[in-house]
Write a protein that binds this DNA or RNA. Sequence first.
DNA 1: TTTGAAAGTGTTAATTTGACACGATGTAAA
DNA 2: TTTACATCGTGTCAAATTAACACTTTCAAA
Lengths: 252, 252
Amino acid sequence: MNKELKKVNKNALNPNVSVDCVIFGFDLEKLTVLLIDRCRNKRDKGIKLALPGNLIYTNEHLDQAAIRVLDELTGLKNIYLEQVGAFGNPDRISKDSDREWLKSIRAEPEASVITVAYFSLIKMPDYLPQASSFAKTAGWASVSEINELAFDHFEILQAAKEKLKQKIKIQPIGFNLLPEKFTLSQLHRLYESILEKPLDKRNFRRKIQKLEIITSLKEKQRGVPHKPSQLFEFKEVRYQELTQNGFDNFGF
Amino acid sequence: MNKELKKVNKNALNPNVSVDCVIFGFDLEKLTVLLIDRCRNKRDKGIKLALPGNLIYTNEHLDQAAIRVLDELTGLKNIYLEQVGAFGNPDRISKDSDREWLKSIRAEPEASVITVAYFSLIKMPDYLPQASSFAKTAGWASVSEINELAFDHFEILQAAKEKLKQKIKIQPIGFNLLPEKFTLSQLHRLYESILEKPLDKRNFRRKIQKLEIITSLKEKQRGVPHKPSQLFEFKEVRYQELTQNGFDNFGF
DNA sequence: TTTGAAAGTGTTAATTTGACACGATGTAAA
DNA sequence: TTTACATCGTGTCAAATTAACACTTTCAAA
């Protein structure tokens, strides 16, 4: 697999196609996304924040490219990853300052670029921001507070949010955003954050429990200034069972 | 809008990005898809049938490119169109015969090509196969009988089918495949064809009628050797109403 | 010991789903 | 003209699902 990567890296860059990653995290309060701050690279008058992304190699599979970029940024492997779609507005690099910045990292900044967006779900604590040089300027931002991004990245983010919203209604992929052990309240907040609407606490718990996709551990939450909650764990096996047999509605 | 198209056509081709169209039709019996037959172009040992597609222009918006290709092939405008996703396996042009064929229509056949797939829904009778030169070799094939296609087009078709399946569960887009006036049985068969499973007749009718998205006409079906059925018409206004106000579950 | 803060828990009414069968109505053939 | 054939169109009931709703428990910190 590492060998594979090296082979690919020998190839030339495809100047027309890039991959952008919408990397979602969850800080147990709200949905977040990993952005890179272009200010630290250069003084800049344009919008500072952008989604991490890069050009792909000529002979690289698109999905492979997304995996590679994600790995370069976070050092993480085996991450939940899904394509959002292709974005190809030729006006997407609209600001001069954007062009300037692109010149600093790309051989042919003026070439028309199609970008293929992916979203991934990671467990935030697993990500150590300083793991790679590429990630030096990276940081988490609260999704709901983002109003603008560089290039057409805001549009991409909206599409990724929408895709995630649809997906989580159908498949229980939310666990990719939570630590191994989590509480039902955390899961509840996660769903509310993603769906951007309140869900009745008791109805939510009932529905989740009926899926039999989580196991309650012996353990309880500790050190909280209120009644500690039961910890749960995701049941991988049951997940396979559900997703395989033509299961296509989680029910939210 | 025509001006727009001309302007775009002056630009150079982007040798790395193509658009492929999965054009669905419905012959009132089963779901069909428009394929081009490469045999008529050349004697050919590879797989004959492929999805229509073409390279995009350097400064062309992806969606615009899909609209253009669809127009070039069918002469149709204002068609329901939706992106399926990007496909970028560098091995996608796997057979030598595929390469040969590509050479005959492309300047740089060896360049790595990302393709962005779109699916569209058209009313079959509206499409006159001889409308354009590009369409000379085009024809309808029954979706369920397709086992292989050129390049990675079979994979793309599967993805498009899946997308359509998901979409029709959520939004009433099926009417784009039916004539202006249609019967409930036709609509019923359409849903069964797309979802690839039987739906109870009475339950189906009940559910559709509750949406209040169709109006029953005064008119009845004529010339059938059995009880003629009521004709219905799609209620555009109600559709807007439903899709706008955060309506997101059609219920199939 | 009191207070604050979140955890955890059930019932009920309304709605939706799924299963199921037969008479009506037109054309075409006998 | 009668009959056969093919599809149209229709209703009920039981089961499952959804939505709305409030109070007691438990721990830590003050």
